[in-house]
Design a protein around this nucleic acid. Structure first.
Lengths: 347, 347
DNA sequence: GGTGATACTGAAACCGGTTTCATGACGTCA
DNA sequence: TGACGTCATGAAACCGGTTTCAGTATCACC
């Protein structure tokens, strides 16, 4: 390794990181041990020496070597975050929330991408474990439950946006059945009875749950389920376009569409436009997520808002508490209907 | 530190990370040194022993301790990425590109957020330096040139989406003057002469450059610059709304709008809709970035596509080469006009 | 003055790798 | 047979912290 010349620099420039605890010790005329004690406040140190050490650290611009620290203490002060690059803004926002929640806790995030593939996901988790992260945040994902159960005994783990049996305390998700129910309910309350559904990825739990909520609301209102009104999409805007085209080709009437998420809604909205169908005058449209662009669709999109950012910050806070063995509280974060202008009252 | 019981586990579950090089050495009946040599391939090892070591590693499920590795070798195998959480999808996409470009290089990314504030940014860079990252990718940012010059002598650094004098080799950006020129030119070619401009954040270099391109195209076409057609926005959708409201309140006529980015275009499009102004029949609209939602605006948005993802991957590749002292090539990545349906030919 | 508790400190071991250095075995050549 | 280069290997130093352990100094109390 080539060493950079030692030079003391003042000001706000990059800090010279070659200063070791030994240098501090010499300058302060104490031993390494004492310097360590001052830094970590692990035992009493005479005030004179403490000041000398502090002063030396100040003038020399000491930054501890994290490897040495990690090796000696077994702590890395980093948190591993596993995202699933589904391209959906929802997961990005959750991740943003985690970053924010971690800020000023002293822990740094490391991101890896599971790509919604079980094998990839397990591999990246192992990479993270190899890097000795102090905790894990899994956002979504497909690793089977029994492996996660094993995992959480090894490392503090919080799972976001996925429901796991037996993880009540370490699991942050919204009730997608309830949310799907609410969305459908909103349409029904506005007088709609022929409600089309554009589903998300086939075996995706969220998509399934929202579908269940849809069915529940229908049943409660005494509306018969019609499979002709359901289109199997994949959470992409393109699938929204295809859905509308397909739905219109079938000759089943519908006055409203419940889209799997906002991207799908955007696609559906465009397709409706192409067919000369007005929103909401001819067909109402409701989305899911409330991503930033939803409020600026024409017309602004009524959607179920997922508290993605808050879920992220909550996960971060919970994880820190878990690491420190403090009691953790998982806040109740329900999806909330965000009423805008894409749903009309049916007369 | 509490140690987890050593247990050898087969299969795809979490790997036991308590196995050390010493354990391998004992099982393979060789010394630590030899194990290290096999792992890093740093010198010749007799084939018999090599196999024994490999076999031991396999059955014991060895994963090296990164701290020990880092401490001893001075390498961390991590890359620090500084993003600016401007909320713009552009920066997120660049970051995604960097992640992807780093995949399978052995380097892991660590993200930090500079929040477009010089002090914050310098602080997070120092955190990264403290973590001994092997390289840095700065996406955007405001740290002054002289500090960056100092920085790059200390650590391999690549800057994305920001133009830096003297950094020709380590700097990936598009020519925003040219891009602004192209966008404006497109409108002019379609017959527009009264072209409104919604600017981005006031002192943001990209915004300034795009403005310059706008002026250049105007001048070239012999169109007089009219400050009444310029609105000072901030890259947000909301500023697009305000811009249109303000522009309409002034009694200056315009037939087209060049928006600072797609979010602004979305806002502008909604505001035009509110005023009963059709796009593109009454007013044409051109955006910048080509974020995912642009293709699904109604009508689909014509926009200058920034190769954000490609910039990210290029940055990753360049950085790896920089670290390994290999020649690095910065690809030429121009913005490209993405013609869709929001610009009409003026008759 | 002796005893014991308490405050404070430095030497040294340790964390788990990498790298240097010394050495032994072996083959080649004069 | 002796000198020398090459291959292969283990012992030990080292990276820069944390933590244990042994000890000294000081003070209170009997």
């Amino acid at each position: 390794m080539i060493k950079v010349n030692k030079k003391s620099q003042a000001g706000s420039g990059p800090v010279n990181s070659q200063i070791t605890i030994q240098d501090i010790a010499e300058r302060a005329k104490v031993s390494k041990s004492t310097v360590s004690r001052v830094i970590n406040n692990t035992s009493l140190v005479h005030e004179d020496k403490r000041q000398a050490v502090l002063e030396a650290m100040q003038t020399l611009g000491f930054q501890p070597n994290v490897f040495a620290q990690g090796l000696a203490s077994g702590q890395s002060m980093t948190i591993g975050i596993v995202t699933q690059n589904i391209g959906s803004p929802f997961y990005d926002t959750v991740a943003q929330g985690v970053i924010t929640g971690l800020a000023s806790t002293g822990y740094s995030p490391i991101f890896v991408d599971g790509q919604w593939q079980q094998s990839t996901e397990m591999a990246v988790i192992n990479t993270l474990l190899g890097r000795k992260v102090d905790g894990l945040v899994l956002i979504g994902g497909k690793v089977p439950l029994h492996q996660l159960n094993e995992l959480r005994e090894q490392t503090p783990t919080i799972v976001v946006a996925r429901e796991l049996a037996g993880w009540e305390n370490q699991c942050i998700f919204i009730d997608n059945v309830e949310a799907g129910y609410q969305a459908t309910r909103h349409l029904i309350e506005r007088g709609h009875r022929d409600i089309a559904l554009i589903r998300g990825i086939k075996d995706h739990a969220d998509a399934i749950h929202r579908f269940e909520g849809y069915c529940k609301a229908l049943e409660e209102a005494g509306i018969e389920f019609d499979s002709d009104l359901v289109y199997q999409g994949d959470f992409s805007a393109q699938s929204g376009v295809l859905a509308v085209n397909s739905l219109l080709a079938r000759s089943t009437h519908f006055s409203a569409i419940f889209a799997a998420n906002d991207m799908v809604a955007f696609g559906a909205r465009l397709a409706l436009h192409r067919h000369g169908i007005r929103v909401p005058e001819d067909v109402s449209l409701i989305g899911f997520d409330d991503q930033a662009e939803a409020a600026f669709m024409t017309p602004p999109l009524t959607t179920m808002r997922q508290p993605a950012f808050e879920m992220g910050t909550a996960a971060a806070k919970a994880l820190i508490n878990l690491i420190k063995d403090k009691p953790l509280e998982i806040p109740n974060l329900p999806a909330k209907l965000q009423v805008r202008e894409s749903v009309a009252r049916l007369r």
